[in-house]
Design a protein around this nucleic acid. Sequence first.
DNA 1: GAGCTGACAATAG
DNA 2: GCTATTGCCAGCT
Length: 109
Amino acid sequence: MTFKDKVIEVVASIPYGKVTTYGTVALLAGIPRGSRMVGAILHFNAERFDLPWHRVVNRHGYISTNCAEHTRDIQKGLLEQEGIEVSPSFIVHLKKYGWFGEDEAIKNN
DNA sequence: GAGCTGACAATAG
DNA sequence: GCTATTGCCAGCT
């Protein structure tokens, strides 16, 4: 079980209509400061494992994505389809939609 | 096989 | 409170 696999499980455990941060995913994956890799792992494994990468934003609730294949516009659209309100500035209200692993993600031991 | 890069976050000043 | 530096490790060259 590598950090990559944990990240995949955590991201896959994000409830519908909720969003989380890279720091939270990294923390649940066992690396409190491995937030950088979360994005990288998602970038390479999101489509491969069919992960809801769009539910992951930075700690400001802002869509950090700058990839040509995964633009903020795409993520914003996906979030809106989840029923999540996204500000015109691509900001998500973590106060309302923020998820910090209150459920299965803690089953990591 | 070794080094560099990378969807960020936390700590220190 | 804000700016600057360090840290994490998988994936790519």
